[in-house]
Amino acid sequence: MAEMKPRVKVPATATKGEIIEIKTTINHDMESGQRKDKDGKVIPRKIINKFVCSLNGKEVFRSDWYTAVSANPYLSFFVKATESGNFDFAWSDDDGSVYKTSAPITVS
């Protein structure tokens, strides 16, 4: 379940060419498909399998996730600040849902 808003940390401003760190977290059980419930029934796999970060519509980072990614996934990575605009973040769930958020940046 991703019931709570994803959180992202992006610097509000950066100088052109600066390498900035982007931190992200999202609440999700990352149900691995390897656990059983109280009645011994396998709990079906339901994970976020893909994460994409774009700047002004152009992909700048992508990641494929498997069942070993911890619940409530945390991910940080770097991006070179090239232009002002919006970072868009999208997490794709096994069930087809896509959880999204965005954050602005001003590059000077």
Partner: peptide, 15 residues
């Protein structure tokens, strides 16, 4: 993790 020159630095952290 798929990277490109757009990242400037090849480093990731996760759990």
């Amino acid at each position: 993790f798929y990277l490109s020159p757009a990242n400037g630095k090849a480093e990731v952290t996760m759990r």
